[in-house]
Amino acid sequence: MLSTTISKAIALTLAAVGLLLQVESAAAQGYPERTVRLIVPFAAGGGVGVFGQQLVAHLGPELGQEIVLEYLPGSGGMIGAAAVAQAAPDGYTLLLSTAGPIEVSPVTYENVPFDPIEDFEHITRLGSVPYILVAHKKLGVKTLEEFIELAKKQPGALSYGSSGSGTINFLAAELLKIRAGIDLVHIPYQGNGPQMVDLVAGRLDVSMLVPNAITQYVDDGTLIPLATTGSERSSNYPDVPTFKELGVDVEVSSWYGISAPRGTDPKIIAALDETSRKLMQGDSLPAELKGLGIDADVSASPEEFEKDIAAQLALWAQVMKQAGIEKIK
């Protein structure tokens, strides 16, 4: 009798679960049925926000629903990312994810309010921006080889700038130090503005900067581009070789993508991935992004996107350990 009762209870539970899955599946097939929020984890007006504006102008019409940007800045992007990690996994709260809060902050900060892998479904990487190592003309170097040779002759004498110890261009420079076997002095700044002032004035020797930040000073000869961290040459600087071309194993990019809370229906993830991929295979959005200095860089699949993130997290953790860098508290 007891066995029969338990069997009936199990059958009822399975039926309820099956019904719930059918309802969720039906909802996913009609996705999206209302406005979608895309959380931007940085302040309005910055590069990430501008990328978001370009993206939703194309993605919304393709999905047939309005997508609104909601800015939740703070703590290097972690506040916005945490809000999405804790949101309902229904596809109506998404994250405009970037390398900063997803790959860099989790290894550079002591307290991070989310797990960058376990708490998200990373859907599609859409574009990336490489860094370019530039040297002030006073150094007298024209190539990466000349710079490394100079740095080895003067260990600890040359300086590099960054936007702070919790940023990707800081880690990229530390990776260069390790892979090239050179010693540079780190000068942290509160943002790129003050860093550019000192670099252009010659008070700073080198920096890792995004292409759009250096155009004016490369054109007038103040800064000399030595190498790019991208997997391929930058479309903005096709004559500048990659580090890997030059035999130095440094490959780093700041990327932009779409992520959702863990547990989001696979059909919703597939719909977003397919639509985003379609946009990036067209002409309009990639051309607009190129004007912002962003190269089209679409991940092969959500699974590959997540693997890439996991690999980069492991690399930055290794750099932190090898360089003896303490986490920010």
Results as ranks from 00 to 15, higher is better:
195 Q>H: 04
320 M>I: 12
101 P>M: 03
100 G>Q: 15
54 Q>K: 13
145 E>W: 00
180 A>S: 04
328 I>N: 05
300 A>V: 12
172 A>I: 06
197 V>E: 14
43 A>C: 07
153 K>R: 09
139 L>I: 07
68 V>H: 13
314 A>T: 08
23 V>T: 15
326 E>D: 15
142 K>A: 10
290 K>S: 12
271 A>Y: 08
51 F>A: 07
167 T>K: 12
193 G>K: 09
215 T>W: 03
51 F>M: 09
151 A>I: 05
117 I>G: 00
48 V>N: 14
216 Q>S: 11
23 V>G: 14
50 V>E: 15
141 V>L: 00
279 L>Q: 08
174 E>G: 02
52 G>N: 14
252 V>P: 11
295 D>C: 00
105 S>H: 07
204 L>T: 01
114 F>E: 10
190 Q>C: 03
158 L>Y: 05
168 I>N: 09
106 P>Q: 03
90 D>S: 12
55 L>C: 04
14 L>Y: 11
206 V>L: 03
265 D>W: 15
239 D>V: 00
300 A>M: 02
114 F>Q: 06
140 G>S: 08
137 K>H: 03
192 N>T: 08
300 A>F: 06
31 Y>E: 11
196 M>C: 04
218 V>W: 10
328 I>L: 07
23 V>R: 12
281 Q>D: 15
264 T>H: 14
223 L>I: 01
51 F>E: 15
143 T>Q: 02
31 Y>I: 02
75 S>G: 10
323 A>T: 12
63 L>C: 09
112 V>T: 10
147 F>V: 02
79 I>R: 09
174 E>W: 03
33 E>V: 14
258 I>A: 07
263 G>L: 15
289 L>Y: 09
131 Y>F: 08
115 D>R: 08
23 V>D: 14
290 K>E: 13
144 L>F: 00
163 S>V: 03
33 E>R: 12
144 L>P: 01
